[in-house]
């Protein structure tokens, strides 16, 4: 093949890739030109005027977060009615029922590792669902426009802790969202956790769900959120060799890290320090050996003292 033809071929390939990428970015353009902004404009044909309106905050989409989210590859109308493509949107469209996770993910072998069916069963047992069965859905915690499986992709445990805790705080620290789901009085988290020593440190480094969900061996994240009376209050549940923390996120991270580096306990050692839970086998053995040698030395010296004093 002549070099000029090869060059032309490469250029065509690059152009087609570029056009494809452009199309991908633009697939939601008609929706996001309004829904990605605080304000939007439309032409009022009757009066021949351009009208500027403010966008309702819960109808706004964070485009960057959406692109990075698990569902970022979808067109808006993959989940929302295609009728939204016409503007002004029909009032009836507000009544459309939203999909829940298992409407798409149930029974799909590709998603089997996420255990969506088991998650749904656990969710029905959760205090959240049982207190507000009509209002509480998957989306109450997992915003479909921003949600990403942080624990599986996050490099650091601290980032996953922060991401996951922000999900809880999106209601428990925001009265307006909390009131959408329940008639109960908002809980003051700082006050209800006053008993917890080093509160700030715990909040930064431990996920709410570590203490507030029922342990599950089969699920990475247990979805049985328990009433507050059942939450863990024992320090030694985490601060011990058999640490509760090793049951979920830390176990997962440890297993993943072991796959990569072959070093057991690598994550809990590198990423965090939990007194009582972090135990280095080799240091433990070394300390026992040194301590034993000192005791043997003292014992031998004592024997000689007794023997020689006679």
């Amino acid at each position: 093949m002549k070099p000029s033809k090869l060059l032309l071929g490469c250029m065509c390939l690059l152009l087609s890739f570029s056009l494809y990428a452009q199309k991908e970015v633009n697939k939601n353009h008609s929706c996001l030109k309004c829904h990605a902004h605080r304000t939007y404009k439309y032409m009022n044909e009757d009066f021949g005027m351009e009208i500027k309106e403010s966008m309702c905050s819960n109808r706004m989409i964070d485009t960057l977060a959406y692109q990075q989210s698990n569902h970022g590859m979808f067109k808006c109308t993959d989940c929302h009615s295609p009728e939204y493509e016409t503007f002004p949107h029909s009032g009836n469209l507000r009544m459309e029922l939203m999909y829940a996770c298992n409407d798409c993910h149930a029974g799909d072998p590709e998603y089997a590792k996420f255990h969506f069916e088991a998650i749904e069963e656990a969710f029905y047992e959760s205090m959240h669902y049982n207190r507000s069965p009509d209002a509480f859905t998957c989306w109450s915690c997992h915003n479909p426009h921003t949600y990403k499986t942080q624990a599986r992709i996050g490099e650091k445990i601290s980032e996953t802790v922060s991401y996951d805790n922000n999900i809880c705080l999106s209601c428990h620290a925001d009265v307006s969202k909390y009131e959408l789901l329940t008639e109960r009085e908002n809980i003051n988290i700082l006050k209800s956790h006053e008993w917890l020593p080093n509160q700030e440190l715990h909040f930064k480094n431990v996920r709410c769900i570590e203490c507030h969900t029922q342990l599950s061996d089969s699920l990475l994240v247990s979805h049985v959120v328990m009433p507050k009376d059942s939450a863990i209050r024992e320090c030694t549940s985490c601060h011990s060799a058999n640490s509760h923390l090793m049951a979920s996120l830390y176990r997962y991270k440890s297993l993943e890290s072991r796959k990569g580096s072959g070093f057991l306990n690598a994550v809990i050692i590198n990423d965090s320090y939990v007194i009582g839970a972090n135990r280095n086998k080799y240091l433990n053995i070394l300390s026992v050996v040194i301590f034993g040698l000192v005791l043997i030395g003292i014992f031998t010296h004592t024997i000689f003292r007794i023997f020689k004093s006679k």
Partner: peptide
């Protein structure tokens, strides 16, 4: 050095604590 600063501090604290506890035993003896 890529390891949690808290962990390094805690390890140092425990190691020196251990060495000082050996000192205590030897001192008493």
């Amino acid at each position: 050095f890529g390891v949690s600063g808290l962990l390094v501090t805690a390890l140092l604290h425990a190691i020196i604590g251990f060495v000082l506890s050996l000192f205590l035993f030897i001192h008493i003896y």
